[in-house]
Each structure stands twice: as C-alpha cells, then as structure tokens.
Design a protein around this nucleic acid. Structure first.
Lengths: 345, 345
DNA sequence: CTGTTAGCGCATTCAA
DNA sequence: TTGAATGCGCTAACAG
C-alpha cells in the first residue's frame, strides 16, 4: 500500500542505492535530488522504520519504563524526558509497568524486541533480574529515581535521606518533639526517607513511640487511616511528616474531616509535589523534588552513553570496555508554607 | 549479537520454517517442540520484532498520541488504555504532543514509520490534517476526549455540555444568580463546557455580566488571576463555575489567599478530577469525568475496528468498505461536596 | 508435520 | 556520483 523506495526508483529511474543515499544525507547531483524530492512528495513516501531498523539494527528510539504511569510524578518526568530525547533526535517509547514486576519484565522484553537503542527505567522493585534481556543486548540503561540491588548501574536520583533529615530537622527547630511519621518501608524511596527521619530523631535524642510510626504503602488509604489514628491518640503528635504525594493526600483529607486545625493543633511537612501546597489551606511546607533536573540529567547521561557506544564500543584487544557507572544524587528543596507552627509545649 | 532463528536451526537441526511455526503457535512433534524450547532457553532467543513486522506488516502495537502527557487526566487514561491493550495482546507506544501541533504531526509520522496497527488520539487542535499519514495508511483511528472538525472519525468523549449545564443548574437550584465562569474558549473541551453553562443561564434568564465571564487558557495562571479579579469586584459573584483541573487549582489558591471563605462567602463548583476534592477544605462539589469508561470504550472500539479490518477489509467488488463512524458520548457525574451554600440574597 | 524457497524494504558493500 | 548485488531476521506459500 504505502510507497517504498522502489516506487521512487520506478518514478525517477534512479537506483535504489542513490535514493537510499539521499534519505541518509549523502551527496548527489542537485538534479537527482530534485527528482527524488518530487517523487517523495507525490507518492507520500515515508521511510519504513522496520526495514531500516532491520538493516541498521538500531531504531533511534529510547525505551522508557515507568513503575506507574498514573501519577503526577511520573508524568512530569515523562514530559521532560520526552522533550530532551526529541531534541536529540530520538523518539521515546513509554511502557507502564503498572506497579507489577511481571509486567515490568514483559516491558523490557517487548522493548528489546523493538530494538530500542537505550533504556530509562524507574523500577518497580529492588532486584535487577528483569533487566537481563537488556543487559544481554548490551544497550545503555539509566535508572531513574530508584536504584537496584547490587547496582553497577547508571543512576540518577534524589537524595531522599538528606531531604527527610532536613524536613524533620525543621520540625525540631520549631520546637516539636512529639513527631509522627507516615511513610513506607516497602517502597524504595519510602525506606530512604524513613531512614533520614529516624537519623535526625536519633541525633536529637527524640524517641518515636511505635504508635507514632505509621508504615504502609505509598497510598491515599494509608495516609488517611494513619492520620485518623494519630488524631485519636490519647496524646497526639504535635507534628507529622508525610512520606509522599498520596500519603499527603489521604492525611490532609483525614485532617480536614476532623476537628483539628493545621497549624494551630498540628504541624505538617510533606514530601513530593508542589501542586498540593497550592490547594491546601494553609499552604503546606514541602520537600520538593527537582523533577526537571532529575529528568534532564538522566536523559543527558543516557544520550552520552549512546554517544560513547558509537565511538568505541570495545577496547582494541576485543575485551569488553569496563565503564565506571555513574550515580547522580540530586538534592531536594524544602519550600516553606504555613503548615508549621512554633511548638509551645 | 542476539540470537536468531538461524542459531536455533543450527542447534536443533530443524528448518527455519518449523521454528517459525513453533513461534507462531503451529503444531509440531512434542519432541521437536522440546528441542526448540531448550535452544531458545539456552540462546536467550527473542523474536526480532522488526524483522517480523517487516514481513507481516503489522506490529501488534497501538500508537497513543496525547495532547499533553504532563497532567493527571491524561495519565489516568493512559493507565487504563494500557491495561486494556495489554490484555488484548497489544503493546502501546505513547507519544506526547506537548501541546504543540507541529510535534503532534511528527508523532503521527513517527508512528506510521513504526507501522503501528491502530491509533488512539487525544488531539491538540481542531483540524484533522495532521492525521493524513495515518488515513493514507488506512489504519483504524479512535479520537479520545476531543473531536475534530468535519469529523467522520470514531470518537469517544464526555458530554461536556450537558454536564456543565447541570453544574450551573445546581448552583441555580441553591438560589444563586450572581454566577461567574472561569473557563476557556480556546480549548475544545472548554468551549463545550462554556456553551453548556451559557445555555442554562439563558434558560434561567440569568444575565452574565462581562466581568463575570473569565475566558483564557486551561491553566493555573488563568484560574488564579480570574479568581483574584472576581473577588476584588464591587459586587463579587456568589458562585463560581471553574472549567477544568488547572483552573480549579489556581482559583482555589487565590481564594485561600483571600479573606473570602467557601462556601460562606462564595460557592464553588468545578470540572475534572476527584483528587482535588479530597484536598480542599471544604470538599469541592465537582463534575467528574468517567475516565475508566472513557478509556475502556475507546480501547474496545479500536480493538473492534482492528478485528473488523482483519476479517473483511474490503467489499467484494474491491470498493472501499464504507463504515459508519461511531461517536460515543458518555455522561459525566456530579459528585457533591460542601462547597455550595444556599444563597440568601 | 516438516523443509525449501522467496521476498518484506532498506542500507551497504563494491565496481563502474 | 551512481548502480547492481547481497543480506538483515523473519513469515508464508508450497511441496514433500
């Protein structure tokens, strides 16, 4: 149905090779160039990327595998990644792992079948087995936002630990000592943030009673329940650290339904996403991740690897070139709102 | 580098055809089946989709082109679409148009090059020219959330008009007559919603003074500015209709910064996204779109077209089969919160 | 049930 | 600068 270079050949009388050369930016007589352009125009010719890919065994496509596409964090990253890759002449092929390691593994295999040139991965779990097919294909991989066990991978992420440390530090600096944490132990970023919090509490010699430590999933549900429970406590906390967007959502929801006021009765600090702050009243004090930076660095790193790969894929003696893997840890920023009050107790 | 069926042939002694048959689910001797499976295992063989696609000229991939990936609405749809297609054995290739018609046109061309089997499109603009390459390739296309001029396309969208009509109707039923609208004329869904609002106002014989009609982009900025201006009016409105997620975001932000209280001083109703309601205090009354349904219907429709295409692509006389295009208009749902008060004036 | 053969659309030698 | 020939990895007849 669609036109091929053969149709162009028939139309112009030139050979396939000449046309191919035109397509790939070679030199030819202006006269022939014109002929070809005219034919392309008339036939609505477009390169068949499958055929081209079959020959060149590269696709000019980056595979982007995200743990969960249905959230703002991921989408924003996708936007920035896409822009960057587009500028560099690559298209991106986005796959959603739906928070399921099985689907994730399928995605990798799928993208290998599509012969993507490189991979950006926000992984679901912690183990790197699912990347086997990509490793075997020997294409560059950059992990985003989360690292993998054993590592050895290129990786760009946020310094969750330090940011959480500073967040709780801020609560302390306002005089709070009855501090609760709603977070997660089961999610990678959750664990890191938790550790940061606990580290500061330890340093400040603040004990956190078990009923103040609410660990579960990064879900609205968990945030909602936990906040409810905290508020019903005999001695409720004076301040709460909330570990991610969904938790904040649920927690603020529970708070709004209660008789408690923020910051009069309870102070809040949360991790993730500036949008929330604009909606809630009073404005939430937040730890905000540098999403643009995160995406740009990851894209640039992958693009660089792609470049390197083209240049000197292997050492002269035929040995696999051992490249140092790069780990970029970006700082998060605390944006102050009005959700923290000086604690008088 | 990667293994091919030829390697399997060398390993098993069977012919290419037999192996191909195995790959595509044909019948063969259990004995041979085992041999092949063993070889695949050992060689880590995976089908080269480019080669396969070159022959079959189909890719088992659906192209999904979204006007803007960086928002919750789009992401949620993407999640549901992805699930549906995956179940049906298709992968999805997501492209972000970044709200730019030029990029959108590139995306279509790109996906045609990739030989996708079908297309889901949430278009940026109103004119269908950019779809030319897809039309020429004669693959099924389903428009989502927005239709295109001249139409003739399969399309699944929300009944924005009726929903907006009912939203304003609700404000009226609470006795409001000084009603303001923050919306958009430049965006497709915005126009539809605006029309719905105006229609009801007309029916109720309510005049809307120009200073109550705030038209701009579907942006936080526009929502914020407009709400500020409304509140500074000599005679501010008693109720405000907000046309989409971003507008709500900005408007609520402005309201929170002001001395006005909702619903005491001003009643609110908004369009889009339930999440917002959980955050704001009091809970917002919202017109919520049936996202899951929207996505499922669109996916099903496309899948059905794909099926039809395989069955009888053309009539017997060789003429192009003229298929009726299908337009599904789904109703939106009003979810009541506490942001509307009876108006006493 | 299995093997042989041809060709999908293109890039890439190598000659001319 | 151009053209003829070859093969990328796979599927789809067809023949055995």
């Amino acid at each position: 149905m669609a036109a091929t270079i053969k149709d162009i050949k028939d139309m112009t009388g030139l050979s396939l090779a000449t046309i191919s050369k035109y397509l790939n930016g070679g030199n030819l007589l202006p006269e022939n160039r014109e002929k070809i352009e005219k034919a392309i125009e008339e036939l609505h010719y477009e390169v068949n990327e499958m055929a081209r890919g079959l020959v060149t065994s590269q696709s000019k496509v980056i595979g982007v595998v995200v743990f969960n596409i249905a959230n703002v964090f991921t989408c924003t990253l996708l936007r920035f990644l896409g822009e960057r890759f587009r500028e560099a002449g690559y298209a991106s092929m986005i796959c959603d792992s739906q928070n399921d390691e099985q689907v994730e593994a399928d995605n990798i295999r799928f993208l290998m079948g599509k012969k993507v040139d490189g991979l950006i991965v926000i992984p679901v779990g912690r183990t790197p087995e699912f990347l086997e097919p990509a490793l075997r294909a020997d294409i560059p991989i950059v992990l985003l936002d989360r690292s993998l066990k054993g590592s050895g991978f290129d990786c760009v992420m946020v310094d969750n630990r330090t940011a959480s440390y500073q967040a709780v530090e801020m609560l302390c600096s306002y005089g709070h000592r009855r501090i609760a944490i709603i977070g997660s132990e089961s999610e990678f970023t959750g664990r890191e943030r938790l550790e940061g919090c606990l580290q500061l509490l330890k340093k400040e010699k603040i004990d956190i009673p078990p009923e103040y430590l609410k660990l579960g999933l990064h879900s609205i549900e968990h945030g909602y329940r936990s906040m409810q429970e905290l508020l019903q406590l005999e001695v409720p906390p004076t301040a709460v650290f909330m570990g991610n967007f969904e938790i904040i959502l649920g927690a603020v929801m529970a708070l709004n339904e209660s008789a408690f006021q923020c910051p009069a009765d309870i102070s809040l600090i949360g991790f993730d996403d500036l949008i929330i702050s604009n909606l809630s009243n009073p404005r939430l004090t937040l730890v905000v991740q540098p999403l643009q930076d995160l995406a740009d660095r990851a894209a640039d790193l992958l693009l660089r690897r792609l470049e390197e790969g083209r240049g000197a894929p292997r050492a002269e003696d035929g040995q696999q070139q051992v490249m140092e893997n790069e780990e970029l840890i970006l700082p998060a920023l605390i944006v102050e709102g009005d959700s923290i009050k000086r604690c008088s107790e």
